[in-house]
């Protein structure tokens, strides 16, 4: 139990400690510098750029995976032939390691040698590079994330739908409810806990995605796809500034908790 508590709590305390000190690996010593790390992170131009990219990325992937996941869960909760196998297939991308998913998309979308980017798309007249064009790269990494993570939403929501007793539908149908009314008055209220959890989990997850983006674009071109985790990785493990990296991690943590509370309040 002690170990468990330590694993959960210690890193957070440590982060606070590190964020208040100048801790750069190539400098000796670790002096206390107050909130200077925070000030530096918040005022850098990379921070604003990453904030923009992170917000777009997190919002798009969370909502897209939610809509797709909910839609698929609703459909495959019905008595359709072959739903077992379809559910299984939809769950599969969750098993592909993110690094492999990243390389698979990178190789497939590659404009020079990729089966999609160099073969299928040029055949229909689309000649731009999906991974290196500043206006398309973000869309490409969002698509890869939707591919990997819709499964997660699907599974959580499908589990949630198991609570809804078919008898309730029957009762509502007898009262003459339409499909939409059925969903908004019967189904949705019942699966609301699952929806909140799904949204929050997915939000935290999307906010922290690193591997697929790093593999596909390295955050580029330029900084067009550089989300917070990529920025943090650079600050911490390329610039070896563990103090500033800790400050950014805490800023992200505060954002995560803020959005989480907002979601919980809003929906309940």
């Amino acid at each position: 139990m002690l170990v468990l508590v330590c694993i959960v709590a210690f890193p957070t305390f440590f982060l606070f400690y590190a964020s208040l000190h100048e801790w750069v690996l190539f400098k000796r010593g670790m002096p206390f510098i107050g909130f200077e790390n925070f000030a530096r992170v918040l005022t850098s131009s990379e921070f604003l750029q990453s904030l923009k990219v992170s917000v777009i990325y997190t919002f798009s992937t969370t909502s897209l995976t939610f809509i797709l996941g909910l839609g698929l869960a609703l459909i495959l909760n019905k008595e359709l032939k072959g739903r077992g196998i379809m559910r299984t297939l939809i769950a599969l991308p969750l098993v592909i390691p993110p690094v492999v998913a990243g390389f698979a998309w990178k190789f497939a979308l590659n404009r020079e040698v990729g089966v999609i980017g160099a073969y299928m798309l040029p055949a229909v007249g689309f000649m731009r590079s999906l991974l290196a064009d500043p206006s398309l790269a973000l869309g490409s990494i969002i698509m890869a994330d939707v591919w990997s993570k819709t499964s997660l939403m699907f599974l959580i929501l499908l589990a949630g739908l198991q609570v809804v007793s078919p008898d309730l539908y029957e009762a509502a149908r007898i009262d003459g409810a339409s499909s939409w009314q059925l969903f908004s008055h019967v189904t949705f209220p019942l699966i609301k806990p699952a929806v909140i959890i799904a949204l929050i989990i997915r939000f935290i997850d999307a906010f922290n995605v690193f591997d697929t983006i790093f593999v596909m674009t390295s955050g580029g071109p330029g900084t067009a796809t550089q989300t917070f985790p990529l920025l943090g990785w650079k600050i911490g493990f390329l610039y070896f500034n563990l103090g500033e990296a800790a400050a950014l991690a805490i800023i992200m943590l505060v954002m995560t908790i803020g959005v989480g509370i907002f979601l919980i309040r809003r929906i309940t």
Partner: peptide
């Protein structure tokens, strides 16, 4: 250079050269 060069790493250099591109 190739059109996607702005995000190319050594893996892409290798692939493009290996594929005769």
């Amino acid at each position: 250079g190739p059109p996607g060069i702005a995000t190319h790493t050594w893996v892409d250099m290798m692939n493009i050269y290996a594929m005769g591109k």
